[in-house]
Nucleic acid binder design. Sequence first.
DNA 1: TAGGCCATGTAATGTGTTACATGATTAG
DNA 2: CTAATCATGTAACACATTACATGGCCTA
Lengths: 190, 190
Amino acid sequence: MSLEHILLGLLQQPASGYDLKDAFNETVAHFWSAELSQIYPTLKRLEERELLRSRLEPSPKGPDRRVYTLTGEGRAELRRWVRGGPVVGAERFAYLAQLYFMSAADDLRETRAFMMDLRDHLASRLAELRTIEGKIFAVHGDQPDRYSDDGFHRFATLRMGIDSIGAKVTWCDLTLAAIDRRLAPSEPAP
Amino acid sequence: MSLEHILLGLLQQPASGYDLKDAFNETVAHFWSAELSQIYPTLKRLEERELLRSRLEPSPKGPDRRVYTLTGEGRAELRRWVRGGPVVGAERFAYLAQLYFMSAADDLRETRAFMMDLRDHLASRLAELRTIEGKIFAVHGDQPDRYSDDGFHRFATLRMGIDSIGAKVTWCDLTLAAIDRRLAPSEPAP
DNA sequence: TAGGCCATGTAATGTGTTACATGATTAG
DNA sequence: CTAATCATGTAACACATTACATGGCCTA
């Protein structure tokens, strides 16, 4: 399961479930997400399997925190996972399914509205990723060849997001242009 | 649920569960997939809700076929779905998660092997999509502006697949080049 | 006659979301 | 005082995969 391995990956430093939820949002949010209600039982299971260990710590605010630490076995399992070759699953894009059947709406202006909406979504996600990229450049410079191994890998995943969403935004624009040609009245003969 | 709506969309012509599995592979496979064991109960549920109706038909080979047909309500529900604005969920890419934590493998040659493997996967999916595109061009010509509305929408989804996977393949190549620069011995001073 | 395709389905399990439940501390 | 944030968890439900079960027909 990917979530289990992602939690192992994030636990290079000890952290609580609550911390990990934040770490999710700050680091892997653009290719994975998880709710607290899923994180807590998953951590418990990982501890039962002795890939993690936990201790209770008093918290300055709120109830005690259960802080998890990676065990040797946990580190080994993370290693196995990353070395196991790419896990390529069948990705699901609900919005493409909608577009595929959009002629059922029987009005191309519906498609136009749909594509504008989609473009907005994608463009704002792209902007977020570019902001993260800007921050990385500001801190580590704009030459990834000089990054640490850790930084290099993280930058590479970010880059894939930027490139592939960038391609999708361009596709939205081209598709919108094609829709407008279809909607325009045909050229009158001279 | 997307699967329900996709089944409604595919049922422009009456079909059995078995047929629909094939239709999946032939049409929407690059952005959605489903197993027969999921399709059968879903069709049953849609019939209970009167979005579909079914009748048993003798089959030339094998057991009787349960053939489903779209009802008026089913058609209306499909329409509602496509008109409801793009459903953009958080997409999950397990292989990006692996890459993100790949420095845990402690050997950049592992990353290299991983990226080669990934590139192969993506390139072969891209090739499949281009083959489909070639077939469409052969039948309907290479000017999508002249396609029927139906054909236009279908071509647009195909195009997104080609563009976004194309961008990913390019990203693989650039990342592999960067890895090779890192692996190469540093240039000796003159 | 063995294996593949046609054809339907159930059961068990895995994975993920939403809603619910509880309660302390702190900033406005 | 009210809302947000900190902090943990359970329960119900939704969605998807894998394995199991059955059996006829056709081709190599």
